[in-house]
Simulated assay, not measured.
Amino acid sequence: MAARRALTAEVVALHVSPVHAYEGRPADGPRPDPGPVSRDHVVVRAGLGLVGDRYFNHAAHRRAAVTVFAAESLEGVAAGLGLAAAPSPLLVRRNVVLRGFDVDGLARHDVFALDTGDGPVRFEAHRPANPCAWMDAVIAPGAFRAMRGRGGVRCVPLDDGVLRLGPVTVTV
Rank of each mutant, 00 (worst) to 15 (best):
N95F: 02
R62H: 09
S88C: 11
A59F: 04
R5A: 13
G105W: 12
P89M: 07
V16D: 01
R145E: 15
A59Q: 00
V121P: 14
A71S: 07
R63L: 10
D118W: 01
R99P: 06
A71Q: 15
D160S: 03
G49Y: 11
A3W: 06
D102I: 05
A137F: 06
A79N: 00
R127D: 14
I139Q: 03
G76Y: 00
D110Q: 13
V96Y: 06
G119M: 03
L158P: 02
A85M: 10
C155T: 15
V37K: 11
H41K: 13
A113K: 07
C132F: 03
V92H: 10
A2N: 11
L98H: 09
T116Y: 11
H126P: 02
E23C: 04
P128H: 08
A140W: 04
M135I: 06
L114R: 12
A2K: 13
D115E: 12
L158W: 06
S38M: 10
S88F: 04
S73W: 03
N130W: 07
V96Q: 08
M135D: 03
V97I: 14
S38A: 15
L83G: 06
R45V: 15
V19Q: 11
R39V: 01
R62K: 08
L90Y: 01
A64S: 15
V103Y: 02
F112E: 00
L81N: 05
G52N: 04
V162P: 06
D28H: 10
C155S: 08
G80I: 08
L48N: 01
V168H: 11
A70N: 10
R31G: 10
F123S: 08
F69A: 10
P30L: 13
A6S: 15
Y22S: 13
L106S: 03
A46C: 09
C155P: 09
G76E: 07
G105H: 12
A133G: 02
G82W: 07
G166H: 08
G161C: 08
L83M: 13
L163K: 11
A79Q: 10
L98T: 11
C132V: 08
C155W: 04
L114F: 09
L90G: 14
